[in-house]
Amino acid sequence: MNLVRTMAILLFAVAALGAMMLTNPGRDRAFQPMVARIAAGDQGQARLFSARIDGWHLEPALSLPSGERTSEGVFLVLDLTAAGTTESTTLAADWIGASGRRYATTARAEGLPRRLDTAWMQPGLDSELTATFELPEDEIMGGALLLHLPRMPALEGALLMAPPQTPPAIRLAPVSR
């Protein structure tokens, strides 16, 4: 009888330990920014910044001062308005594609004005910015924009923003900016 009880307690302990080990979140899941979902067209508000998507379009090629940049996919350009809240800050953006893959703003857009990657948000001042992504066209519909502080500090605010409901128009001849 005593042995049975001991075995039952031991089994329970092993099961409890196994359950804890299996459900224990890894560091990648435990230390995440706090993501708020923002519906299409709405203004998103995080602790250090607020942002809104004003529009989007596609460009088959980017014309830069250093020459034209083409792509195997397309360039998705989002026009944003963003502002700081309490402190000057920089922002970074990722496009979470329809397949769940994560596309960072492309470094190939270097030289375009008003790039989100290099701009500083000042408290209380709206800045108009563009975020440019290079991606396959089928990642666009069903995807969303993730705006966050650079290097994704844990427990900091981030915004997962739905894009406009109308599909992006293709801008064939890039307008001079």
Binding site: G67, E68, R69, T70, S71, E72, G73, S99, R101, R102, Y103, A104, T106, A107, R108, E134, L135, P136, E139
Partner: peptide, 16 residues
């Protein structure tokens, strides 16, 4: 190869 720009990023699903 496409435009002789230095290889910086590599995007998923876009072989270069």
């Amino acid at each position: 190869l496409r435009d002789q720009a230095p290889l910086g990023q590599l995007q998923p699903r876009l072989p270069e």
